[in-house]
Design a protein around this nucleic acid. Sequence first.
DNA 1: CGAAAAATTGACCAAACTCAAGGGTGGTGG
DNA 2: CCACCACCCTTGAGTTTGGTCAATTTTTCG
Lengths: 207, 207
Amino acid sequence: MGAHQQLVRENDTIDDVFVVQSGWTCIYKLLPDGGRQVLAFPLPGDIVGISFLTLGRALIALESISEAEVSPLSAAALARVRANHPRVARALDWSHARDVAILTEHLVNLGRRSALVRTGHFIIECAERLRLLGFDTDGGFDLPLNQYLLADALGLTSIHLNRVLRQLREADLATFRAGKFVIHDIKALRELAGFDGAYLAPPPRMP
Amino acid sequence: MGAHQQLVRENDTIDDVFVVQSGWTCIYKLLPDGGRQVLAFPLPGDIVGISFLTLGRALIALESISEAEVSPLSAAALARVRANHPRVARALDWSHARDVAILTEHLVNLGRRSALVRTGHFIIECAERLRLLGFDTDGGFDLPLNQYLLADALGLTSIHLNRVLRQLREADLATFRAGKFVIHDIKALRELAGFDGAYLAPPPRMP
DNA sequence: CGAAAAATTGACCAAACTCAAGGGTGGTGG
DNA sequence: CCACCACCCTTGAGTTTGGTCAATTTTTCG
């Protein structure tokens, strides 16, 4: 599927979850005044919409932001796999718990961190998530977003985000250009962000 | 149990969930700089910590803020009740999905709403949640918090929250005093907040 | 090449924070 | 009964952070 395809709209009735197989996606909510808050960027392996099966309808929208593969999975199929494969069921539970942990950290980010620290935290989180997926993020990583989308995730205007990115660049911490983050000094960036990756850690013992 | 009792600290290892039976509680995260972000105020009937069973340890802290009853429930007991009572299992799923929806709305609140609108939204949400629990919130409701805690929930300083509360009072929308909100004009407040309560709605058909 | 999208910048403004000082209020012990 | 203390609330003055408006430049892509 191409970039910028809408897979779920707010208030859609839902019978499937969506399994991201490759590429970048985002989930968001719109506001009456036209604003948008990006809630998360589900990555390959992530499952979107588990809770909306229970609620009966989507409270958020889902969109691809790069070329992406996203597979719908019916509630019935999900229930079957859960029933027949306890280890998979546990993995699903863990995945969902981690999603909530990421959402929670995002909330903290918006509520209690300055634009600069918040942006730094976001960068480290992305790098860490990609690293756990097996990507090498030492020097940086692809993040195929424009600054509008990034700003909507970070609760900033795109203009202010632009200035924050310049600060990061001028402090030789990280550079964002053409959909790529280059990290110059990950140690300093982690320190700036006060990053504690415990919420991303895989479970103690999992298949 | 009395007010201001800590039930779970961040990073505690966890074998139980906590069922709030009566009173007000809050869950929060602390920041390296001493700041605090309150994530939610679980009310009677809410269950705290389901996802931490899966993760093995708590990523948040839980505290009572008023006189409250909170019952621990072991993972084993929870699994048993799930297995034996499908309707209860469904209710638990729904409750958890709703918690995530509330968290999500809180995130939107912090990311994209002004202090005034955000505070208004919070008030309406509380009133609505209490109403769904059977309380009469037409004129207002008890909210046994101090302004520090409320500010930490809303991502504001207590000083600024105080000014926002004054604005609400002077606009004849709502008054907060001595742990009570009095709502003067709920219609106008809803409008101010752009409140859409869909995320709180009970499921289409539930026991 | 040329149009559209995205990024960047400047000047100015508004929202929210900081610092500092008072005021209430309820509880406790003298 | 009152003085005192702890905790919370309130307000003012000044600063900082982030937002708004309005260009201009750069990049992307057909």
